[in-house]
């Protein structure tokens, strides 16, 4: 988030996404603000139900318009997306912005060949002929590292392995050289060795085309590998934001501490128990008052007057860095030092 001086490529301001359901209003996203520059990767971390996927479906305009109440603004290259018509969005989707989903098998049509599915997007946006689209599909398959692309282009999704399907989906997402790519847990269903291949591929493609990437994941290890900036979400809100280095080296929010503490590492101590976060993620139908993390937070008693349960801590961002917590900077430094000490031997 370096381009504060001028118009950033993607800018999300105070985004609120509420769904009305039979049981009440689900506040899936509640006041989210971030920027993303071209050629950069923003990692969004959060648990299930933290609003990370909803945010990105909203950017693409893939939400159900009748049942969703949206507030705020999303500017892509200066263009407001929330008020854009469906036709305008259709012109952007697959062309200027596209998305990779977690489950590649469910996201590809089983009735059409891989080549046709990749070419379809290309034809729609460029008006290319079938032959040109096929050639483009072969070129894309080659670029994402599928062997014998001229043969595999006529295969159906079931003939591909899991890693190859994910590659095919990346090829489909990138066929029109999008400027914004949203990757929603693209490697979660894959094995680690294949995950490493896919992440390297994404990094290479980003260098080549200068694509801006939003990478959604629950795995902080993946974030460490791919992201430039990190946004930690909890209960529909951003609780912490900063560069990868800042967030992983000196996290400022108790939730981020908890996430890091609950993950075993490949070279940490093995004879001490992990530090899980107590409790479970909140229901967004009826989120906790004040700070949404307070029922699971171990630091609430450090704040006087029960402020955590009554007042929502504001996310104050300076130079792209900030955390939404009532603890003072000094307190955080002290508690983080204590916490870090428990993580070492």
């Amino acid at each position: 988030m370096t381009s504060t001086d001028q118009q950033p490529f993607l800018s999300v301001r105070d985004l609120k996404v509420h769904f009305s359901t039979e049981d009440g209003v689900v506040k899936a996203v509640d006041g989210l603000t971030f920027d993303l520059a071209k050629g950069k990767t923003l990692g969004i971390v959060g648990e299930s139900g933290s609003g990370k996927s909803v945010t990105n479906l909203t950017i693409l305009g893939l939400h159900d318009r009748d049942r969703t109440a949206i507030d705020g603004e999303i500017l892509l290259d200066g263009k407001e997306l929330l008020t854009a018509s469906e036709r305008e969005l259709e012109r952007l989707r697959g062309n200027k912005m596209s998305m990779i989903f977690q489950d590649a098998l469910a996201s590809l049509s089983p009735y059409h060949t891989i080549g046709k599915q990749i070419g379809e997007t290309y034809r729609k946006h460029t008006g290319a002929s079938k032959k040109e689209a096929r050639e483009r599909a072969i070129e894309m398959l080659k670029r994402v590292g599928i062997p014998q692309p001229d043969m595999r282009v006529d295969d159906y999704p079931h003939q591909f392995s899991g890693g190859m399907r994910q590659r095919a989906m990346i090829a489909m997402a990138l066929v029109c050289d999008p400027e914004l790519l949203i990757a929603d847990e693209p490697t979660t269903a894959l094995d680690v060795t294949v995950q490493a291949q896919i992440m390297d591929l994404l990094k290479d493609l980003q260098q080549e085309f200068g694509t801006a990437i939003i990478f959604i994941t629950h795995d902080l290890g993946v974030i460490a590998d791919i992201a430039d900036d990190v946004l930690v979400m909890y209960g529909g809100r951003c609780v912490e934001r900063g560069t990868k280095k800042e967030v992983l080296r000196a996290p400022q929010h108790p939730y981020t501490w908890g996430l890091l503490g609950s993950m075993p590492s490949l070279d940490g101590p093995v004879d001490v128990p992990l530090n899980p976060i107590p409790g479970a993620p909140p229901s967004l139908l009826n989120p906790p008052t004040g700070c949404r993390f307070h029922p699971r937070c171990t630091f609430t008693e450090k704040i006087e007057g029960g402020l955590c349960s009554t007042e929502q801590p504001l996310l104050k961002i300076t130079d792209g860095r900030g955390a939404a917590c009532h603890l003072t900077a000094d307190q955080r430094r002290e508690f983080f030092a204590d916490y870090a000490a428990t993580r070492s031997h």
Binding site: M164, Q195, A196, Q197, D225, K244, L248, S265
Partner: peptide, 22 residues
Amino acid sequence: AVPEATADEVPSRERILLTGDV
């Protein structure tokens, strides 16, 4: 291949990238 949650510029172990599938 296991990504680790550290912000180190140099990874703690050399990365070996396997090609192909099982």
